[in-house]
């Protein structure tokens, strides 16, 4: 029983990381209708920025901030430099974002190499407690807390701010947002940066969480994030939350008993949901 409880808690903490990754992906899709294959590389660079900064300055807050800023800056460059030119062309979007993922993944190997780099949990978050037979790891609690914090923050942003109002309107009808005197292109950029920044945050948290960073981690995380976004319903924030937790728990439980089947478990959960609800758990075009 305690093993199951521990696995479920691990799964929820994994789910929090998945959520940070998939939230950005789904928001970008909801507003911009862009399936962003470059999202994994924002996570990857955020992870390496976090590890690099922590190793250099031993300041975890700086490492987290560095991860977020790195992700957001890459998002800004990608959106303004490349995406802005291909918004009307889904095929080019796909090829371009794939290209960004491959090029930036390879570029990262120049300074950091192909081998995994160690990432340590800061001492202030390195405790763990044994509650009966159940192990509670402080860094997992912290990761889960960050996921909850970001979810609440995004809900507040979407429902309590003018930017959120514009985003929800833009998801429904970007042309009409222009007719209200709102420069929707700037909102597109802000949204892309926000999504990329969240991926960077997920990366910065993921390094210490998994104990190391590798150049392949972006691609692996991206696969899970896509499964979650499709499972939850493209464009739905709530769908991302539920999808992340489902996939997090499913992969943790299956991964414990049969590690090689963990990815298959995620795909099976997605397939089962899509059979019942083809548009995903929360359908399409919903933001929060």
């Amino acid at each position: 029983m305690s093993v199951v409880v521990t696995l479920i808690f691990n799964g929820l903490a994994n789910g929090a990381l998945y959520f940070l990754m998939s939230a950005g992906l789904t928001l970008i899709f909801g507003l911009l209708r862009v399936i962003n294959f470059a999202h994994g590389v924002f996570y990857l660079w955020g992870a390496y920025a976090g590890v690099f900064l922590y190793n250099e300055f031993h300041n975890f807050l700086l490492a987290i901030l560095g991860g977020v800023i790195t992700g957001a800056a890459l998002g800004l460059l990608t959106e303004r430099g490349l995406m802005a030119k291909v918004y009307q062309d889904p095929t080019r979007q796909l090829l371009l974002t794939m290209g960004v993922l491959l090029v930036l993944t390879e570029l990262l190997k120049i300074p950091f190499g192909r081998d995994p780099a160690g990432a340590t949990i800061p001492s202030m978050l390195a405790k763990s407690w044994l509650l009966g037979h159940f192990v509670l790891v402080e860094y997992q609690v912290f990761t889960l807390g960050m996921g909850i914090l970001v979810y609440v923050g995004l809900l507040l942003l979407l429902h309590r701010t003018r930017l959120g109002l514009v985003i929800r309107a833009g998801v429904a009808n970007p042309d009409l947002v222009l007719a209200r005197g709102v420069p929707i292109r700037r909102i597109f950029t802000a949204m892309f940066m926000l999504g990329a920044g969240l991926a960077g945050l997920a990366g910065a948290l993921a390094g210490p969480y998994y104990g190391s960073v590798t150049p392949d981690m972006g691609m692996n995380m991206q696969l899970n994030a896509f499964i979650i976004v499709v499972l939850g319903g493209l464009g739905s924030l709530n769908g991302s939350v539920l999808g992340s937790l489902l996939i997090g728990v499913a992969t943790a439980v299956v991964g414990y008993y049969a590690p090689s089947l963990a990815v298959l478990a995620a795909v099976l959960v997605m397939a089962m949901v899509l059979v019942v609800r083809p548009a995903g758990l929360f359908g399409e075009k919903e933001v929060a």
Partner: peptide, 11 residues
């Protein structure tokens, strides 16, 4: 005021 889709039905 456009001819069609001139309000945000979700808001």
């Amino acid at each position: 005021v456009p001819e069609d889709a001139n309000i945000f039905a979700n808001l």
